[in-house]
Design a binder for these strands. Structure first.
Lengths: 306, 306
DNA sequence: GAAGGTACACAACTGTGAGTTGTGCACTAA
DNA sequence: TTAGTGCACAACTCACAGTTGTGTACCTTC
């Protein structure tokens, strides 16, 4: 591809060869090989160089695009000034929504979004420099943030109840936390020891809910399937979580009140991380993000910032 | 890249090897080579397979994108069902605007836009099947359309006068064609024998204008530069042509009236071309395109459809 | 804790093919 | 014609991708 583009840019096999520091014959072979693979003639050879055929013209923008993508791919892991690498707690949560908003405002900043296992993994990744920032809930009891990690609370995401159409509460406009006592709430895939587990442990302890956090996570499809079909089962879901689900399947999202449980997202990063885009990310979040610990909401005591 | 993605998808070197019909050792070598080139570890090897490192996670979407682009690149020249290939008379004209509009409405249709030399080249390319359709002005005198080529007039693009800030007409809200007599109008890069030349020949003959079509085309930058700096010089430009030019440079676009010269764009295609997207393109253009030969406009006699 | 199984890495070997040099041919310009 | 330019073909070399064979680490099972 690089050779093809070089020939297009120079207009000659010979000059392209010089650019690539190989012989003209090698360029000839590469182009011939490419043409053979594609079963198409890319250049018309003349005595004054090479001109693109129509197939070559059609191929050219794709070739350039390929080189661009390849360059970005390499840049994504380049130890030097690689794209800003941000860990989000899960796709389709408020955190990735925040990152989408950031990308809209700053499309020039290259981003790589990854998803790590838990806050511990995220912290060691931040400390090692493997990632630049993480959206997580802090600080889980018994795990104070290290000295060199900074954090700022950026968003409280209200939890909603998700039920199937046959659930007792399916018709409610909203439910109070007290009303949820006695109902089975299913949160599969919550791994003990993670911040999710700590969050729901506190929620259970505070309001006497029945949360079944057991069972493997077979993916959100399986979860939603079960919720839709089981009248006695409900689950919690972030307000901003986008369901990938046929709209008419009868799933109901019901706001929870008195108080509204919110999941506290903080941005974590290493104080001495020199990545220029990191400061822009703080500034963006500080400017765009709603207030937290609002009246009528509940978050675990360890997350409340004094 | 394909190997990397295969390992990610299967979670194991062995299964990836089976997918690719090579040995596990070859996969190991390929991944090791990729990691060496990138100077980064992509997988953590465990006794139950391979898991992505953080660098690997960041790299993965780029790798997938690269494969997608590569596939599209091959498809762009695939003799079978390749993307619809359309020739436009020049970028930044109404024709490419039409194609952008078509792409907005039908993003699922793969397009390749090329620019051929003149209507003759376009016609032979259409007949040979190298391209599927072409936006051109027809029918130039002495060159009737072949029997097997169909055409439909799709757009009349009004010409505007483009002047520098010091030009006599720079302050005018609009000018009549009669007012242009005696002014120097410069259209470099118009090659004799092309449909552009035929168009301007007719325009000159009809209204007694002075059009200097001589001189090589050094690109639109050079043209605009000269126009901006030369008080006695102006040029024509399509109303929908987008200038890539600092807005404050003082260039003036002045509508021309009594009558408004319009450049007649037709869509040409081979009657028996079976490409499914071609019919969609006709239908789209028929539905969205404004009327032509409107009152108060002028087009060459050979272009008027009876 | 020993035995067996799984999964990846290393070593040695082989063959393809990318690159090289050398040359030929087609076209252009003087 | 003649000289010059530009790409293709031929023969050769060697690097390396892929193969077989083997080693090692780790997990599972009894």
């Amino acid at each position: 591809m690089r050779t093809f583009v070089a020939v297009v840019d120079t207009g000659q096999f010979q000059d392209a060869a010089a650019d690539l520091s190989i012989t003209q014959q090698a360029v000839s072979k590469r182009i011939a090989g490419l043409e053979k693979n594609l079963a198409v003639r890319l250049f018309t050879r003349t005595a004054r160089g090479a001109r693109l055929t129509i197939d070559g013209q059609a191929f050219l923008p794709h070739a350039r695009e390929l080189l661009r993508v390849a360059e970005r791919a390499v840049a994504s892991v380049l130890p030097g000034s690689r794209p800003l690498r941000v860990d989000v707690i899960a796709s389709r949560t408020a955190a990735s929504g925040l990152m989408r908003g950031f990308h809209r405002v700053h499309p020039e900043i290259e981003l790589d979004v990854v998803m790590l296992f838990d806050v511990e993994t995220a912290l060691s990744a931040i400390r090692s420099g493997a990632i630049d920032a993480s959206f997580r809930a802090v600080a889980v009891p018994g795990r104070p943030l290290p000295e060199d990690i900074e954090s700022v609370r950026v968003l409280d995401e209200p939890l909603q109840l998700l039920t199937g159409p046959a659930h007792t509460l399916a018709g409610a406009r909203s439910v109070t936390v007290a009303q949820l006592a006695g109902h089975r709430i299913w949160m599969p895939g919550i791994v003990p020891g993670t911040e999710w587990a700590a969050y729901y442990d506190d929620l259970v302890a505070e309001f006497g809910l029945t949360i079944e956090a057991t069972g493997p996570n077979f993916g959100s499809d399986a979860l939603l399937d079960t919720i839709a079909d089981t009248p006695a089962l409900a689950t919690f879901m972030g307000e901003q979580t986008r369901l990938v689900w046929p709209a008419d399947h009868g799933l109901r999202r019901i706001p929870v009140t008195d108080p509204t449980p919110v999941y506290p997202h903080s941005l974590l990063w290493r104080r001495d991380n020199p990545h220029p885009a990191l400061a822009i990310l703080h500034a963006h979040l500080a400017a765009t993000v709603a207030s937290h610990d609002a009246a009528g909401t509940w978050a675990p005591g360890w997350a409340i910032q004094r």
